[in-house]
Design a binder for these strands. Structure first.
Length: 299
DNA sequence: AAATCACCCTGCTCGC
DNA sequence: TGCGAGCAGGGTGATT
């Protein structure tokens, strides 16, 4: 699910239910995900008040009044589930991760729910991640950007630091296909397989073209293409494929507007159709992952 | 150093 | 209907 637009959407959903709220309880259902959870995670979250949110690439940072920030990456299959506590605002953690509300009704965690937080005003927020490629950490707020996972990330594509000049500089001399280069979070932060495909289509650049040949006219097209596709996707609430995206359970809608992603064999939106020399959307495999593009318009 | 590759894990879809 | 193969939005660490 989660590339930049999906993470942004999830973060906005969490902001609505967590910002300014005190975490009355927290619990973990396993030792960790991709990596072990930080020591005492549930204890360190309990009692903290959420001051604010920030996104960096595909990471969410939840700033707490304890001087620490909660760092969350959703991996491939992670989602945040927020729902009102049943019956009353007070519940408690029982054996086997089962929560009970004030009337004694059980609220078992849903499948693959690994971390749960309850706010004082009665919302339960769970981190659900079947494949467990997600990650969670706690770090001092004052040095957020020095965290191992954040240091070295490229510019935020929707901020002023992402320019034709900065992108050209990052791509110059690279001997890897542009598809792979854009997936590299050190080049630009937050793009994944879907939005790389969509941005390259809009910029009419072949995913097979070597990154080092992009600086110039192609970079001039690529930068606004990246920004536009991400902004449109955020506006649509992200893309939902197999999983729900939003914390509120609503589906994103951008998947209905894909030009090439997951559209193998379907007509290219730019080409007039059969007879134009366009065979429709092609699918190839690059570094083990599917790439979708139009071989006629993308050069 | 830069670029590829195997791997982490579960669930779903497709073809037989 | 069951079963195995293949594939999936991610990133890391080891290896070339």
């Amino acid at each position: 699910m989660p590339e930049l637009p999906e993470v942004e959407t999830v973060m906005r959903g969490l902001r609505a239910v967590l910002e300014g709220r005190r975490i009355a309880r927290a619990a973990t259902m396993r030792e960790g995900l991709r990596w072990p959870f930080p020591e005492g995670l549930a204890r360190r979250l309990t009692g903290a008040t959420v001051l604010g949110f920030r996104r960096r690439g595909k990471y969410m940072l939840v700033r707490l009044d304890t001087g620490e920030s909660l760092l969350i990456h959703l991996g491939m299959s992670g989602r945040m589930v927020a729902r009102p506590l049943a019956g009353a605002a007070i519940s408690w953690m029982g054996p086997n991760g089962v929560f009970s509300d004030a009337r004694g009704h059980n609220q078992p965690p849903e499948a693959h729910e690994h971390l749960v937080m309850e706010t004082e005003d009665g919302t339960r927020v769970g981190f659900v991640d079947p494949r467990r490629f997600g990650s969670v950490d706690l770090l001092p707020t004052a040095v957020e950007d020095a965290h191992k996972l954040l240091a070295g990330m490229g510019p935020e594509p929707l901020e002023d630091g992402f320019t034709v000049a900065s992108l050209s500089g990052a791509l110059a001399g690279k001997a890897t296909p542009i598809k792979a280069a854009l997936l590299d979070q050190r080049v630009v932060a937050g793009l994944g397989n879907i939005y790389v495909a969509e941005a390259l289509f809009r910029a009419r650049i072949s995913p097979r073209r070597l990154a080092g040949t992009i600086p110039g006219a192609r970079a001039v097209r690529l930068v606004p293409a990246v920004k536009a596709v991400l902004e449109e996707a955020i506006g649509a609430g992200g893309s939902s494929l197999r999983d729900y995206v939003r914390a509120d359970g609503e589906l994103g809608r951008f998947q209905d507007r894909f030009s090439v992603y997951d559209r193998e064999g379907q007509p290219c939106p730019l080409c007039p159709g059969p007879g134009s020399g366009c065979a429709g959307v092609s699918r190839i495999v690059q570094s083990g992952r599917s790439t979708f593009y139009c071989a006629r318009t993308q050069r």
